[in-house]
Amino acid sequence: MSNDLFETDEGIERVWQEVLAEDALILRGYALAEQHVLLRAVDDVIREAPFRHLVTPGGFTMSVAMTNCGPLGWVSDRRGYRYDAIDPTTGKPWPAMPPVFLNLAKEAAALAGFDDFVPDACLINRYEVGTRLSLHQDRDEADTNQPIVSVSLGIPAIFQFGGNQRTDPKIRVPLTHGDVVVWGGRSRLAYHAVLPLKANSHPLTGSVRINLTFRKAR
């Protein structure tokens, strides 16, 4: 584990780099310097593409509400999981990815050793108390050599991270406001989940957690 100092408009931010697994890193507090700009950008996106609860191919409604921004958006319905340039709810292209999103994702990926990462999709998930994300792999992308960058905002969550097989041992890691997780390389297809959120409150998001997940889909 190491820590680095980053100078921001609000002073010095200390960021701890915590190894999660091979080619997987947690940047503790890395998004704090941009927290207000990030949340304002989320509000801008959801005005154009509101949060919705997607349906899985099996017909179940996801408990976590989500939307997207960027050239592509991840969608799910009875036809399957996929990326699409058009928001099926509005019939319009997804909102453009805010520059603060893109810059944060690229810089975090580079710190984790993944240079030249340029995401074309950002999933925005809204977790309320009791909601969860089931154990899964991110494998709908065309090039799984590209990493995943995940930004936590709002109330804490427990992130579960395993290996490339569903039955591999898993660790549970607390994630708090401003933490950024990057995984790729040998851990790119690691199974991961978010355990049910416990009641909590954050001064900027209230009783919810906002998660930004950046991917290179095509």
Rank of each mutant, 00 (worst) to 15 (best):
D84W: 10
L175G: 00
Y81K: 08
I148Q: 05
R126D: 01
G113I: 11
P98A: 06
P88C: 08
F117T: 04
L32Y: 06
T213C: 07
L153K: 03
R132F: 11
D43V: 10
D140S: 09
V42A: 05
L20M: 11
D120L: 07
L111N: 12
P71R: 08
N200W: 08
L123T: 11
W183H: 12
R126G: 00
A190F: 06
S63T: 12
D43H: 12
G113S: 09
D9E: 14
D116G: 13
L212W: 03
S201F: 14
L102Q: 13
T144E: 11
V55N: 06
E7M: 15
N145T: 15
L25C: 09
F159R: 05
V15N: 10
P174M: 08
N145R: 14
M1E: 14
E48G: 12
A65S: 07
G59P: 05
K170Y: 07
H192R: 02
E141Q: 01
Y127D: 00
V129G: 05
A142Y: 09
I12P: 10
A33N: 14
I210V: 11
V180R: 06
L111P: 04
E141I: 04
I12D: 09
S207G: 05
P57M: 07
L27C: 04
E22G: 11
W16H: 14
G162R: 10
V129M: 08
Q160L: 13
H136L: 04
F51R: 05
A49P: 01
W16Q: 15
I46N: 00
D23E: 10
L27Y: 07
R209W: 00
A85M: 06
V37Y: 08
R166P: 11
R78A: 12
A157Q: 08
A108P: 03
E13D: 14
Q165D: 14
A65R: 05
R40C: 09
V182N: 02
A85L: 13
L39R: 08
K106Q: 12
N211I: 01
T167R: 14
L5I: 13
L102C: 11
R14W: 10
G113F: 05
A85D: 13
D143G: 02
G11I: 05
A110L: 07
R82C: 02
D138G: 08
L135Q: 11
R166D: 13
K92T: 10
V64S: 03
L153N: 03
L153M: 09
W74F: 09
A33D: 12
F101C: 08
S152N: 02
D179L: 01
N68Y: 02
R215E: 03
V173E: 07
V194R: 00
L189K: 12
P174Y: 03
